[in-house]
Write a protein that binds this DNA or RNA. Sequence first.
DNA 1: ACCGAAGATTTGATCGTTCAAACTTTCCGC
DNA 2: GCGGAAAGTTTGAACGATCAAATCTTCGGT
Lengths: 372, 372
Amino acid sequence: MAQLPTVDDVAQRAGVSRQTVSNVLNSPEIVREATRLRVESAISELGYRPHASARRLRTRQSSTIGVRLDPISNGISGSILDRYLHALTEQADERGMRIMLFTAQDEADEIEHYERLRDGADVDAFVLTGTRYDDPRIEWLARERVPFVAFGRPWGSENLEDPDRLWVDVDGQAGVRMATEHLIGRGHRRIGYLGWPAGSGTGDDRRRGWETAMASAFGSDPAEVADLATETDEGVPTARRAIEELVRSGADLEALVCASDSLALGAMMAVREAGLPHFPVFGFDNTPVAQAVGLSSVDQRLADVAAGTLELLMGATGRRVLPPGYAARDDPRHRLITPQLVVRRSSHLEPVEEAGGTMPGNREPTEKEQST
Amino acid sequence: MAQLPTVDDVAQRAGVSRQTVSNVLNSPEIVREATRLRVESAISELGYRPHASARRLRTRQSSTIGVRLDPISNGISGSILDRYLHALTEQADERGMRIMLFTAQDEADEIEHYERLRDGADVDAFVLTGTRYDDPRIEWLARERVPFVAFGRPWGSENLEDPDRLWVDVDGQAGVRMATEHLIGRGHRRIGYLGWPAGSGTGDDRRRGWETAMASAFGSDPAEVADLATETDEGVPTARRAIEELVRSGADLEALVCASDSLALGAMMAVREAGLPHFPVFGFDNTPVAQAVGLSSVDQRLADVAAGTLELLMGATGRRVLPPGYAARDDPRHRLITPQLVVRRSSHLEPVEEAGGTMPGNREPTEKEQST
DNA sequence: ACCGAAGATTTGATCGTTCAAACTTTCCGC
DNA sequence: GCGGAAAGTTTGAACGATCAAATCTTCGGT
């Protein structure tokens, strides 16, 4: 084979012009049926495929979305980005888009990459993850009018409804509320919460889910349940120590809802070691670890998050990135995804008699997924 | 600003021609110093950046490497690809290359994607992961002369030295041997091995590491130590059941080396529940979970793997993908990376008296990394 | 001071596609 | 069967860069 076929080769073979071939590919509805069929068979006979770079040059579209890969995949929770990325790649492909990765040291460096990639016409849009208070990246992208969607709300600003700040997020509050209600439904009353120190948008939001569930079930207000809550930094060992301390101090808890699987794992280790093999623990994120150790958790439905991302970026079914500020008047500029409970052994095993050396329930139960 | 500047704008500003600007960018050594400086300042004044697609069209190079994102990030071990991807992206960027993702349902689908991406001139090369016996993907790529590097040896074929089959891999045998020797050095004798069923290249290789360490320390041959080995499918629960069974049957073991962190985690859960809080367990992969629960493990050194990948693809310092079959006569067509022990609590804690309700060693020790 | 080669710079063509406008054919009503 | 709009197709130009070859400069040797 000498060389890859071009539109001209196809055109010649089908006895039509370049442009007709191009039309068959890009707007088949304006080509007469007979012609179209002739061109299509020429295409498949020659195995023609459009040259991506040539097309991009001409159309001034890269059909590419840039995503920063976080510096360190943040421990256990790192797999969230991983799974999101997978869903995003898959769905982007269906719309003729591709995902390009880049890395950056910090936020300033990330913005430099934005600039480079934008100026080099390498990407049409960006997807941001790990947003925080007054995120400078969002400010830059909005100011420069570069299309983007944030996975994570732009917490703290009044910009939650700003049409220039598109975001998708998981409703952490609803997720934690569902988990808490699940435990309430199983008859538990004194349900504790293990979360992060106040001040992070995500953390405060999740905690609110627990508070509202407790409030609507028992009529307690947040202040009343505050003594059931524990704060600690993210991480298995920190959570473990915190719960060990709690156990030692004789706290009277029946169950525990946690802000993350890492915290829940630490908590599980602590309560199991403390001789409480059936103390229910709930995590959040549904990481592979949760699945591995049988930890009940809240699944973020990352496929839905990915779908929402692309919807905001390209419209419901579009195949190109919309200019920023675009969007129908009545279309919300964000998507809040309701997560899903995944109930596993850690929260629903009935106490059983322990027999020497083995653990209760040493068979992995079929995983129950309960959508609500 | 009306529009992005082009070479012509820069040329005009610097009072030179297009091509000189291009030369300043691509082969500065052939441009006279005075001219070069003039052009460079014009470039920075205008904030010019070459248009990636235009360059790709003309040079017929996409400067892009395609990587398939696995369908399901395989549980706990999924983060390996994640971390490898990060290192690869970072190092590729330094050589002016980018990483593009794609997903596929199965191997056949993956090959179709190869074809699409190749024909569309979207990528210059591919990186394969999760190679297996007589991998059809490798056959296809080699036959079609598409540049690629496999992360993972093309097990089983005699092609390990085939110059058309480039690969990088982690020396699992050496890693497991190091782990075993570490335990031997701590005075253990009856060290068991928990691995996967025979037949997978990676699994057999890792087991051999344990066998050789045992052989050279105690003069035993593989047949003699076979009763210290246990086989089970990958996964935390399977490993847990296997080790529970082992404990119940009264096996006389002092320590355990495992083929993966998942297996090790299951094993740890089993031995801890069996009332053996200080039974040493070693994992493999150094996943975030290992770090989280204090499991000693073997780190794959993914940054070195990524560096090896690019070296094979582009030469020691090159900035473009080499044609397949190229490479200096004396240059090996593969890289075998020696992993690194990461010793944590799970393998080196001294027994301590248990006090009611708390666990021994409830402080996370500073992580020791021991390179060998 | 002249010649030729090496060095530096410019010019024209090209990569493969799509846009915009021109051109040709089809179809309908009168 | 004619005019004209609509539908279908073709042509020339352009996207922004680099390649290849042509041209212009510089410089050492005689």
